[in-house]
């Protein structure tokens, strides 16, 4: 009971300490710019052709919004996880929590729950805000909903854990910022969030499928438009495996953090 209470207290603490107004504005404003500016601007270039998703064709704004939902899960979870672990390590709060009634296991589980919740909330926000742009194509069913939740939750675990690993290994703020920005530039733009992977030159297509964001976006998009195929299920397995592996590494990094 105390384990559960302590973990929940840490989740609450993470939200209070890491999620402020600036974070929330950034979490909404950034994707909204993508959806409403980039989305409509590119739509004029693409015209009425639409984009294929499984057996259907959707508008570019629908395609983009469904991609930004996954992107925002990545963005939110990595920002909050990196912020918490980086600040706790740098500002001595990890040590302070551990001399209180909290254990490292509780700290790690608390962070995991926070990452998933922030990822899901970030995605849900975009789902609500971007709904007007894709309502004609949305077809979420009881069968496809778990795919969406799974993709966003697992994606949050992957990116949250990945940022935690960076935060525990990197020593200086400058390096932390440069590596984070560099990697997330790759994750964001070498993925199927903004454009389809089909028809790309082979090297670029391979790079797309080396990027977990592609899997998150593909699975959640298949769920949103009810276009689940065998390939979606293979992506589910791959995303699960890499997320668990990265989480295990992140856990080890947190356990080995010097206090």
């Amino acid at each position: 009971m105390s384990l559960v209470n302590n973990t929940l207290l840490l989740v609450y603490r993470n939200f209070v300490a890491a999620v402020d107004k600036t974070f929330l504005i950034w979490m909404v404003a950034f994707p909204v710019v993508y959806i409403f500016i980039v989305g409509y601007a590119y739509s004029t270039l693409i015209g009425d052709r639409g984009i294929s998703v499984g057996s259907i064709t959707v508008t570019y704004t629908s395609f983009l919004t469904s991609g930004v939902i996954g992107f925002n899960a990545m963005n939110g979870s990595s920002a909050v996880a990196g912020g918490i672990v980086w600040n706790d390590k740098r500002n001595g709060m990890l040590q302070q929590l551990l001399v209180m009634q909290f254990s490292k296991v509780q700290y790690i589980v608390g962070n995991l729950i926070t990452i998933i919740l922030v990822g899901l909330i970030s995605a849900a926000l975009i789902m609500i805000i971007g709904f007007p742009t894709m309502y004609r194509n949305v077809n979420i069913t009881l069968w496809s909903l778990p795919y969406i939740i799974y993709a966003l939750a697992m994606g949050s675990v992957f990116f949250g854990s990945f940022t935690i690993i960076l935060s525990t290994k990197i020593k200086s703020s400058e390096a932390h910022s440069v590596i984070n920005n560099g990697l997330f530039l790759f994750f964001t733009f070498v993925s199927s969030a903004f454009y389809p992977a089909q028809g790309l030159p082979t090297p670029l297509a391979i790079a797309f499928y080396l990027n977990p964001l592609t899997y998150i976006v593909d699975i959640s998009r298949a769920g949103i438009f009810s276009q689940i195929t065998t390939f979606t299920n293979i992506q589910v397995l791959i995303l699960g495996a890499i997320s668990v592996a990265v989480f295990v590494i992140a856990t080890r990094s947190m356990v080995n953090m010097k206090v």
Partner: peptide, 22 residues
């Protein structure tokens, strides 16, 4: 502890309140 420890983004009052909750 010898090293400083603080919640960066919180005001003194909010940090104390959070500490009380913890």
């Amino acid at each position: 502890s010898q090293n400083p420890s603080f919640e960066t983004n919180l005001t003194v009052e909010k940090a104390l309140d959070l500490y009380g909750i913890l």
